[in-house]
């Protein structure tokens, strides 16, 4: 059966076009404790929370252009929580002086039958991984410190092998497009984490090899 023609169009998220402002960095395992300590001090006064998530990355290959990527994620620590389907656009080129990476972002909460649905639509799973770590919040900013692990047997989230000896640190904000004050806030926050972790705007498209 022939795959239906796919047009890869930019996706806009409903009525509000949300953008993700992102800064990334990493810390070695040894430095994790001090980073968490610092984050606890800087972030909103909430109970520190841990998470374990399983992310599946789906591709839909069209006739032309880049494949269309969707990320489906579920929480292993909260099995009843809905799945999360996410589309991330290409990083915006534009203002070089902007302090954070900006990309289009569509978030959808989904029911548990999401993988089947995506398969039916013609998406194919490209890769999957398990991320576990800590999540913090400061106002609109979300700070996720996570360890990424490779899944050895497809589908079995118990059997994993960690990818590196370091933790990924992500500082992200969801905001409507054109709010550059957000990136300013993010930079200020990143400054405060400076000696522990260097948060930078990293363009994933340039990391490809």
């Amino acid at each position: 059966m022939e795959a239906p023609p796919v047009t890869v169009m930019p996706v806009t998220g409903g009525t509000i076009n949300m953008m993700e402002y992102l800064l990334q960095g990493s810390v070695l395992d040894q430095a994790l404790e001090s980073l968490l300590h610092r984050l606890r001090g800087l972030c909103d006064n909430m109970e520190p929370e841990t998470f374990t998530d399983h992310e599946l990355v789906y591709l839909l290959k069209g006739q032309q252009g880049n494949p269309f990527i969707l990320r489906a994620r579920r929480s292993l620590s909260h099995p009843t929580a809905p799945w999360h389907l996410r589309y991330l656009g290409q990083p915006e080129v534009g203002d070089k002086s902007r302090h954070a990476l900006v990309r289009n972002c569509v978030d959808v909460a989904a029911s548990h039958s999401l993988p089947e649905f995506l398969n039916e639509m013609g998406f194919r799973m490209d890769h999957e991984f398990v991320a576990n770590g800590h999540i913090f919040r400061k106002g609109a900013m979300k700070i996720v410190v996570s360890k990424l692990s490779r899944i050895l047997v497809p589908g079995n989230t118990e059997n994993t092998e960690r990818l590196s000896l370091s933790y990924l640190v992500e500082l992200s904000v969801l905001a409507p497009a054109g709010q550059d004050t957000v990136s300013e806030d993010m930079r200020n926050f990143a400054e405060q984490l400076k000696p522990l972790v260097q948060l930078e705007k990293i363009d994933p498209s340039k990391q490809r090899h």
């Binding site: 998470f51 994620r73 809905p82 999360h84 909460a109 991320a131 770590g133």
Partner: peptide, 21 residues
């Protein structure tokens, strides 16, 4: 509350639950 999975946006729990369920 903190979103689970961690990539989900902040927001009320009921907003996240209402659609899928």
């Amino acid at each position: 509350v903190m979103p689970h999975p961690a990539s989900a946006p902040f927001g009320h729990k009921r907003l996240r639950l209402a659609g899928p369920l």
